[in-house]
């Protein structure tokens, strides 16, 4: 089981802030493909990966990063702090 978190417009587009998923994904990209295949709202949220960032276990990561042992994956738009 893995916790998947969504923030900002990704959260709004998918409609939930967080969910627990049973997944066989071995990379972030595999997980994205699984999510895209689930429902239209996911396909829409993940349609342009260049507009998205990902964190694995609260560290910024890449879409080709492995997921082995990860407990938490978060998807969000580029950050706008400061």
């Amino acid at each position: 089981m893995i916790d998947v978190l969504y923030f900002a417009w990704v959260r709004e587009r998918i409609g939930i802030p967080k969910e627990k998923l049973e997944t066989t994904a071995t990379t972030v990209m595999d997980l994205v493909e699984e999510l895209r295949a689930r429902e239209e709202r996911y396909a829409l949220a993940f349609s342009d990966l260049s507009a998205l960032r990902v964190a694995v276990d609260q560290d910024l990561s890449d879409f080709d990063a492995p997921l082995s042992g990860a407990r938490e994956v978060a998807f969000f738009p580029p950050m706008t702090g400061g």
Binding site: F7, A8, A74, P77, M79, G81, G82
Partner: peptide, 8 residues
């Protein structure tokens, strides 16, 4: 912190 801290 403008582009590496997770604020939106």
């Amino acid at each position: 912190l403008k582009s590496r801290a997770p604020f939106w």
